[in-house]
Amino acid sequence: MKYWREPLDTGEIDVVRGKVYIIKDRCKGCGYCIEFCPREVLAFSKEFNKKGYHPPMLVKSDGCLNCHYCELLCPEFAIYTVADEGEAGPNPVASATENQKSRLKA
């Protein structure tokens, strides 16, 4: 795994499973979610969406750790994740960022 694939805050997130939602027709195929997913669970699909782009698809069905990084990066509001049933996931910003918060206070 290349180091920049490490989410910026791996240490602090309780590992939970996330469920990934892709709103295919909003996607413009930039690939940021695919490129920067720390778990490499996404890949371009073969299908075309309404706009003519290949939206991402989930390639490892239970690999998502619900870090929300794809959700934050997507310029099109086309992908987001929620904690898998039963598991209370971290709030994408508020609880997953002690690292950054301490960084800001430094």
Partner: peptide, 27 residues
């Protein structure tokens, strides 16, 4: 999408090009 209550969804898709970072910053 968790941000939909803050977006004028009736105006989406926005004008920003594929891969443009403005959408990410806006988000």
């Amino acid at each position: 999408h968790p941000l939909e209550d803050l977006i004028r969804m009736e105006r989406i898709p926005h004008i920003w090009c594929p891969g443009c970072g403005v959408g990410t910053v806006f988000s």
